[in-house]
């Protein structure tokens, strides 16, 4: 897997975790009640971590990510069974079936999101 893609996945996971705690009332409740998590402190910690990991992106990738993340909910999406789960359009078979191509940092030809292949 491309190193930049690995960083993008981490950022997206952290943002997903943050979104779950901030917006998901049930998630917040489970974390507070079952795990005694101090959610507000956790959100601050996550923000710091996101900023820190973002610094690891190459400038070009960061610019593209910022552009995407500013306009859509998820800038990094899986490809499952050859379909981009951002726009649900099929990825070229020549890419989806080639392990070397799948490992590269790549954007969907249709919606522009960063792709990672998950089977």
């Amino acid at each position: 897997m491309d190193a930049q893609l690995e960083i993008l996945l981490q950022i997206q996971d952290l943002k997903g975790q943050r979104r779950g705690l901030e917006e998901g009332r049930s998630e917040r409740q489970v974390e507070e009640e079952a795990f005694n998590l101090r959610v507000d402190e956790a959100l601050t910690g996550l923000d710091e971590k996101i900023d820190q990991v973002m610094e690891e992106l190459d400038p070009g990738v960061r610019r593209r990510y910022d552009r995407l993340a500013g306009g859509i909910d998820r800038a990094v999406v899986p490809v499952i069974n050859g379909v981009c789960y951002g726009c649900f359009v099929s990825v070229a078979t020549s890419v989806a079936s080639d392990p070397a191509e799948r490992a590269k940092l790549r954007n969907c030809d249709h919606c522009g999101r960063f792709l990672y292949f998950l089977d």
Binding site: L9, Q12, D13, G16, Q17, F35, P78, I80, Y116, L118
Partner: peptide, 10 residues
């Protein structure tokens, strides 16, 4: 109960 959401599982 370690837990998280992650893009690496479908």
């Amino acid at each position: 109960i370690p837990h998280c959401r992650s893009l690496v599982v479908n």
